[in-house]
């Protein structure tokens, strides 16, 4: 009888206490008290042995029903409390997400290098090979093989930096253009040649907003049995559109280089005016003869692009000196 009364009381009182449990901790204690090992329910089950057999079955069922009902209430309450506690924990874990973020900082490739890589890629996509050559170069490859007459002004000590190396005081110089690689490459390879040469070049210039003793060029050379001036225009127009945008306007005007004939400059309309972007022309037969190609069999075109100038045109840099300034605040812009 006692058990039955206890069950009735439990069944009446416990639900309110479960509902009032304020934390999973409190609920755990309550659970232990209501359905745990020392709870009246556990006690009731233990006492079933002394209950007469004819009552045992009904009493057992009654205990189980109450236990099930209360356990279900506890589980439901636990779910509610756990979810609230998890939410509270997350709320506690919140941070000021406007604080500066954390990632190892990244460096930059130099802008002129980026430009050279990009131009190289444009020509590689057109079927060219990449090669590079020596910066300290012989007079022969820099001038004579390229059909520069002995009187050409660029040969002067006022224009070209010579090195104290070897017996001939004018024998070794800092290359004034990437064009020597035309001759070097053709000497070592049979036609056809489709070549692009990025590199550093030198002139005896004081540093100012448009001059530097060190700057960068990309040389191009295409030699085959049927390369024409039309191909030259096609290749360079394509380059200009790829590099400066499809809307870019170009024009070719006559010029003179000893190693091309006819020679031209390509101008582009940029920043509100026409500006010279590169020099080019059909390879002079004298150059073919100097490298052992037969000018009656092959024709070709060559071009030289100023990489620094390209960078300046595209990125709004008006002073060449910025490109050679190691100021990291400048370098960080080269993203």
């Amino acid at each position: 009888m006692e058990t039955t009364e206890t069950l009735v009381r439990l069944k009446t009182e416990a639900p309110a206490r479960i509902a009032a449990a304020a934390s999973t901790e409190e609920l755990d204690e309550l659970e232990s008290e209501i359905v745990g090992r020392s709870s009246p329910i556990a006690a009731g089950r233990r006492s079933l042995g002394q209950v007469p057999p004819e009552q045992r079955r009904d009493l057992g069922r009654a205990i189980n029903d109450v236990a099930k009902e209360l356990e279900a209430l506890i589980a439901a309450r636990r779910a509610v409390l756990a979810s609230a506690e998890a939410d509270a924990a997350l709320a506690d874990d919140a941070v000021d997400i406007t604080l500066p973020s954390r990632i190892p900082s990244r460096g930059t490739t130099h802008l002129v290098q980026q430009v050279m890589d990009e131009v190289v890629d444009i020509f590689v996509a057109m079927g060219y090979t990449v090669a590079t050559g020596p910066e300290a170069e012989t007079e022969f490859y820099n001038f004579t093989a390229l059909n520069f007459p002995p009187a050409h002004p660029t040969r002067l000590e006022s224009d070209t930096l010579y090195l104290e190396y070897g017996d001939d005081p004018e024998g070794v110089l800092l290359r004034t253009h990437t064009s020597p690689m035309q001759a070097r490459y053709m000497e070592q390879h049979d036609p056809p040649v489709y070549l692009v040469v990025p590199g550093r070049v030198f002139r005896r210039d004081q540093v100012d907003s448009t001059h530097s003793p060190v700057f960068h060029q990309l040389e191009g050379l295409a030699v085959d049995t049927d390369v024409t001036f039309g191909d030259l225009k096609g290749a360079l127009d394509h380059f200009a559109r790829e590099f400066l945008g499809t809307e870019i306007e170009t024009k070719f005007i006559p010029h003179h280089f000893p190693f091309t004939e006819p020679s031209a400059e390509m101008h582009v309309y940029a920043n509100g005016r026409w500006m010279e972007l590169l020099g080019c022309g059909m390879v002079n037969p004298a150059v073919f003869e100097a490298v052992g190609y037969d000018p009656d069999v092959v024709t070709g075109f060559a071009f030289g692009i100023g990489a620094d100038r390209l960078a300046m045109v595209r990125h709004g840099i008006t002073d060449l000196r910025h490109l050679f300034d190691p100021d990291q605040r400048i370098l960080e812009q080269y993203r």
Partner: peptide
């Protein structure tokens, strides 16, 4: 102008 493609060996 005429756009022609070469027979070069690429980047290397």
């Amino acid at each position: 102008a005429r756009l022609r493609f070469g027979t070069g060996a690429g980047l290397g």
